[in-house]
Nucleic acid binder design. Structure first.
Lengths: 129, 129, 129, 129
DNA sequence: GTGGTCTAGACCACC
DNA sequence: GTGGTCTAGACCACG
């Protein structure tokens, strides 16, 4: 699948899965009606504990992004697209907000901050990584 | 003192103290040779358990920012300023980098991302918070 | 495990654990990739409070000797062996140095000191303790 | 006076004073009947808190090394010499013993330990430091 | 007054 | 099950 898990970046693994699945839906990489890989398969692909994947899927269900289809596993709900678009906006905004809040209260001056952001923005958008 | 603790933002309280003390040194709000508030005083101010503050101070010692003055408390080391300046840059850069990485791989388009950043930047720098 | 804790010899308990784990790695009793007993298990064995053991393990992590395996406990890092060998040499040398410095400035004569050392060396290496 | 205080070597300052005064008596640098500097004077010389010196003197009194002389401060007792000779032997022996115990259980081999001791012994006895 | 250590017991996220 | 964090309260050595 299209998930990049980083086991040591502070964000819980299950939460990384949740966020990235939502993002995949938001950008159209997974569509309503599509099935997601089974817990076992996903766990094998990412070499994670199945419990971790199961937990992520559970959260995605309670968030209304996935729904069980009898005997067929989980598929993306019909209103997931709208939902995930909004969610994406919120998640990204929050994270940027928190980062900037800390930057600002750390005493970095406006120009330096601006410069730092441009730098990172460039480095991020250049390499596809 | 000038610390803003948020007990429920994902970052451990002791770590918030560590980061903010480093920032305070970096921006010159505390200077080498200055003493920091005692464990008990800080704990009272922030209504935290003294152990939590002690743990933060211990980390700051092992990071070379504070040093004990026997029986007199803890003071900022002479090379803390250089150290904290560099540390601040690193901490902030990392956090912004991680946020932008996620934003980019979430599929938000360049313009929308740019706009979102400007928005947050404005909202953060406006209010004196 | 093979730790001998002496709760009243001046060295903090958590530090005794730190030192002895490093020594165990240095002499090959624990190898890179091995897992150390869990916090709770070690605490039970030594009849200590789990927090005390946790503190020691935390120090060992920040010293680069142990690393967490998510949900699976702590294991010895790959470069711990080199590290601990050097560390052991340093810790032991320092302690002997300090003892001899004091002995020398206490006015004990060279021969008497030599004799005293031999005596202790014999008594220590004899009993399997 | 003839004391070398190291505020950061793990041994409490007051205890360093106690030990070194005993050593000075043992090697004849101070004799029974001699007066020791007043608390204030000693504190000034060593730039220590007078309380610290007072505490050391108190311990030395309860150990029978010093005794008050009406209005004249403290002087070395008549049986201090014998007492301190024995004490010195015990203190030094204990410290060496503890160091060797740790060295031995750290897994350093007999030859390496022997070598390390000789090394330190040489470095200590060479420079008068 | 200061920091350092330890115990006890709780809750959390994660596997 | 694992480690991580926090609270609460105690005792100690030191200045």
């Amino acid at each position: 699948m299209f998930l990049h898990i980083n086991p040591s970046n502070g964000i819980a693994i299950y939460d990384q899965i949740v966020r990235q699945v939502k993002f995949a839906v938001a950008r159209g990489a997974i569509r309503p009606g599509n099935r997601v890989p089974s817990v076992r398969e996903m766990a094998r692909e990412l070499t994670l504990n199945p419990n971790t994947v199961a937990r992520a899927y559970q959260k995605l269900q309670s968030d209304g992004v996935l729904e069980p289809v009898r005997g067929m596993g989980l598929e993306v709900t019909s209103d997931a697209l709208t939902h995930c678009r909004a969610e994406r906006q919120k998640l990204i905004r929050e994270r940027i907000h928190d980062a900037l809040i800390e930057a600002q209260q750390s005493g970095i001056e406006g120009d330096a901050l601006r410069q730092l952001i441009d730098q990172q923005l460039a480095s991020v958008t250049e390499d596809g990584r």
